[in-house]
């Protein structure tokens, strides 16, 4: 009996070793361990074994079964591992094929730029406010110290609806509305559309956008204006940006200035972009004219303030090196999808 069992074991092990695929293992299992399998038949022939031998033989049969099962499992695991490896190998994909995208829409470069500017000033405690685009002459000119028949009024190429109603030429009009509310201190920026009678070309558009800034409080200085706008320039154009303030003239500020920033393309060395000067003119600014404060009911003896105005398109064009302003208003998706 013992020899018989040994023989069965050897046969089973040999067959398992020789098996070439997973299915074959099942056949071997059935052949040796199944109901009609060889080992089972040994158990069935136990009745022929002497009763005192039976526990021992039983033990031997069980040992043999365990050994065969273990061997089968090992072999099975081996096969499965191999199969998995093959499967994985066969599943290699070309990761350089394009991804599938939702095709999310793109924001206009003007808006992206505006949002950057808004974030900077909101972080400094400024409110973002708006005013009407169709405006009374008073808010666009007179309250900004540009009286009737002043040459500065002519320079602005204003679109008129009636004698007193016009399309605002500057977001500075929002300053006046904000001051008239009478709530001090003021820290605001006012982005919006403005209109000037300029023919459409690569650098002009009859509709464009400005961002006006206004701060009014006690003790506001020209140094504060410089510091604030320097901070703005560094945050918008990056660390290392330098600013330069040049005297200028605006009717509603005194002293007035224009701010240049070091050319962000060449870093100030001079290039085609900054016409060799190393500087790019970016905004007009100044201390709010005392007469403008007075007209809006603010006491210039007590309060001072500064104001600035930035052309949004100007920044957007510079930032993205867009060489033709018309692209901003054509809405060709091949252009819009780049932002």
């Amino acid at each position: 009996m013992k020899e018989k069992l040994s023989k069965i074991m050897e046969d089973a092990m040999a067959q398992i070793d020789a098996s070439g695929q997973l299915e074959k293992l099942n056949e071997i299992r059935v052949a040796f361990l199944g109901k009609k399998g060889e080992l089972t038949s040994v158990l069935k022939s136990m009745k022929d074994v002497a009763p005192e031998e039976r526990p021992k033989v039983g033990q031997m049969v069980n040992d043999a079964r365990s050994a065969i099962e273990e061997k089968l499992e090992q072999k099975k695991a081996l096969f499965e591992k191999k199969l998995l490896e093959e499967k994985i190998k066969s599943e290699t994909i070309d990761v350089t094929l394009p991804g599938r995208r939702m095709g999310i829409g793109h924001r206009h470069p003007n808006t992206i730029t505006l949002e950057e500017v808004e974030n900077i000033f909101v972080g400094m405690g400024y409110n973002v406010v708006e005013g009407p685009e169709v405006e009374y002459d008073y808010y666009n000119f007179e309250a900004l110290n540009i009286p009737e028949n002043h040459p500065a009024k002519d320079e602005q190429d204003t679109f008129y609806i009636t004698k007193d109603i016009l399309l605002r030429t500057q977001t500075s009009s929002v300053q006046v509305h904000e001051m008239e509310k009478g709530k001090l201190p003021i820290r605001m920026i006012a982005p919006g559309r403005v209109f000037r009678s300029d023919e459409v070309d690569a650098t002009h558009s009859p509709t464009f956008h400005q961002i006006e800034g206004l701060v009014i409080d006690q003790g506001i200085t020209f140094a504060d204006l410089k510091g604030t706008l320097q901070e703005f320039a560094i945050r918008l154009f990056g660390e290392g940006t330098k600013v330069k303030f040049r005297p200028h003239h605006f009717q509603f500020t005194e002293p007035s200035a224009e701010m240049d920033v070091s050319c962000f393309k060449c870093g100030g060395k001079g290039c085609r972009f900054c016409k060799g000067s190393g500087w790019v003119e970016i905004l007009g600014c100044g201390m709010v004219h005392p007469h403008v404060l007075e007209m809006s009911g603010i006491d210039p003896e007590k309060y001072t303030g500064f104001a600035f105005g930035v052309g949004l398109e100007r920044i957007a064009l510079f930032k993205y090196e867009i060489d033709d302003m018309r692209l901003l208003y054509e809405n060709d998706t091949r252009f819009l999808k780049q932002f």
Binding site: Y126, V128, A223, D224, K226
Partner: peptide, 14 residues
């Protein structure tokens, strides 16, 4: 002229 930031009252932006 130096560059400073306004020292006056804080405001909430938004």
């Amino acid at each position: 002229i130096p560059m400073t930031l306004p020292k006056s009252s804080a405001t909430m932006g938004g």
